[in-house]
Nucleic acid binder design. Structure first.
Lengths: 216, 216
DNA sequence: GTCTATAAGAGGATAGAC
DNA sequence: GTCTATCCTCTTATAGAC
């Protein structure tokens, strides 16, 4: 047992090719299963089967169900926040926000399970990433809220509370992933059609951007 | 066993006072527990304890965990949709939508667990209310979409897709209930303060209503 | 690294006394 | 109506052979 403290943070210890592929297969399967069933509802068995191996074999790679969950959640988080971190204070506000909203909608479309995984974690009280929310995420949001406030001060945006604007963008964009079942139920077969996502993007962008455009 | 087909739909059979109070206590406790833990994560034991009775005693009132879940979900649904059904085609569009959004935000504030219960059900694929979504809810949404489209046609609203506008309102208002843990983590102690909900309401109303107000 | 077998425990549901 | 005791299934996790 010569390895150092943290197991979550993927040591720099050499991984054989087979280890690498298996771990990846497990994490991919786990994302799907956790997203649909939640942490409690997911079973190691289902993840293992989906990843093409037996349950004990999966547990050879991750020591517990929780360990898999943490890994897949952490891996998801950074991807998820990347476009937010890129909001550029020197850019044109409306264009910057358009870019951000578009990127988030795209992510919801391409990887709805990442969004669901995250939603589940939060709804259930954020037992695993609660600390992250209160530290790293808060710092990042505070920073971006300052940027938005600056834009408002410059008269480049209508006077809106930056935090609520951010929440609104998150809510709206993630809704298309998290509630896709409801959306599909309501709009029927349209939801599958190729243009649907673009149509959603256009509507969301129209409303939010008009809503925050400065008026004279 | 002389009772007729459906158990879910609460027969018109007489309930003693003690039955009534106990059933109510169970349903209240169940709402909290299911909302936080999800269906799988919830335990009968926890619901029973919270309702002030033993596990077998609870099962004297509801024959299974699923039966409790269905009941509490159905009961929640009608409350949840009531203000949507009241959107009035003859009223002023912006005022009607303001009233609706305000009502939904109020509900999220007063009863976040109802929102979370619903969110959990949808994220997990709507196993219990899937049919309801495809029938009753779809009908209602189609009807209200027509109303919005009519308003747009009259030039009383900017040209927006009614379905996406509805989704946006749902997403934004429910976000304050479903993701309250994240919101609290990000804004800190402010979230508890009395004015916070009003501030949220104002921001949401400002953006959405400005976003859909007709422009000349 | 992967398997079969199994330990260990949680939780849903029932039996039957009171 | 309510309780204690218990059954039984499902699931996590480990032991140990290959």
């Amino acid at each position: 047992m010569s390895r150092s403290k943290s197991d979550e943070a993927q040591q720099a210890k050499p991984l054989s090719r087979i280890q690498e592929t298996n771990r990846k297969a497990i994490l991919e399967a786990a994302l799907d299963v956790f997203a649909i069933s939640g942490f409690r509802g997911a079973t190691i068995d289902e993840i293992a089967t989906k990843a093409g191996m037996s349950k004990p074999n999966l547990l050879y790679y991750f020591k517990s169900k929780r360990a898999i969950y943490q890994q897949v959640l952490e891996q998801t988080l950074s991807d998820w926040l990347a476009p937010f971190a890129e909001l550029d204070p020197t850019g044109d506000p409306v264009e910057e926000l358009r870019r951000y909203i578009t990127a988030k909608l795209k992510m919801s479309e391409k990887n709805p399970n990442a969004s669901k995984l995250f939603a589940n974690e939060i709804i259930h009280g954020a037992p695993v990433i609660g600390d992250f929310l209160k530290t790293s995420l808060k710092t990042l949001v505070d920073e971006k809220a300052k940027v938005i406030r600056y834009w408002v001060g410059e008269g480049k945006l209508a006077p809106v509370d930056p935090y609520h604007l951010i929440f609104m963008i998150w809510a709206t964009t993630q809704h298309y992933a998290d509630f896709d079942v409801q959306i599909r139920a309501v709009v029927g077969s349209q939801a599958g059609r190729p243009g649907f996502a673009d149509q959603a993007a256009q509507a969301v962008l129209t409303i939010i951007l008009n809503g925050i455009r400065p008026r004279q």
